[in-house]
Write a protein that binds this DNA or RNA. Sequence first.
DNA 1: ATTTGTGCAAATCGTTTGCATCTGA
DNA 2: TCAGATGCAAACGATTTGCACAAAT
Lengths: 145, 145
Amino acid sequence: MDSPAAARAPNRNQLSGMLRQSGIRPTRQRVALAGLLFARGNRHLSAENLHAEAMAKRVPVSLATVYNTLNQFRRAGLLREVVVDGPKTYFDTNTTEHHHFYVEDDQQVIDVPAGSITMAGLAEPPPGYEVARVEVVVRLRRAAR
Amino acid sequence: MDSPAAARAPNRNQLSGMLRQSGIRPTRQRVALAGLLFARGNRHLSAENLHAEAMAKRVPVSLATVYNTLNQFRRAGLLREVVVDGPKTYFDTNTTEHHHFYVEDDQQVIDVPAGSITMAGLAEPPPGYEVARVEVVVRLRRAAR
DNA sequence: ATTTGTGCAAATCGTTTGCATCTGA
DNA sequence: TCAGATGCAAACGATTTGCACAAAT
């Protein structure tokens, strides 16, 4: 059951190092949240999700701090914001270029395996602007059978 | 200064007819809002936007009614919801298959001309699901020059 | 010691809803 | 007439913020 090095759950020290390298002071709760986030590969979760998970694992952290931390991690490039609409914001631990399925019925975000979508002609941005990034959201519904 | 028939501003009667055909009772405020929405081609606006515009044109309508009306029009297929994230929901008067530029700096949504983006390989949905629709959002930033 | 983070509760923002009143067919 | 629409204000859910306290360098 072994996995690539990158996917192995990092320990406390590795997490601290990761945060320090991103210019983020490794506090108790930030390390704990990073632990939950990066324990296993690619996760998509909302602030609420993460907070619930922290509570379940008896990591005392307030919802406000979870929000602050997620946004901080995003600014540092450790997380990526997923563009689905709807009331909640999702964060993705996979920061590489890839896209998403979104199941509205159960508010679930799923990675589209890299390479299974290819943009043939990328649209030319209007003058004065440049492309920051491209997000593809494939909205799914439960098959009608 | 003429334009294709479809893009010519519809009059009150045409608007009423349009609503009736969609099974929506053409009330004073719905017709007025439809007038603002469909006066000229392709618009992207939020409830707030439309409400402000109505106020400016002395069309008395409450924000709640604007929300109700937009959602109604969307359900009827007269409008399409645009999937950008951020707090606001945008509605697009162009209901055909197309994609969007989104300028985060000024919260602006712009149509990507049809055909300038082509998906080469469409991702296979996970079993039990089918593709409802595909949304491409090209996020723009102001060119750094 | 100083700077930075944390928790709480209150504030904010977009959106929806309950309900009494009005209005279009 | 009378089902359905409107407006208002209150309710809501997600997110942010102000401030006193606590922890990290």
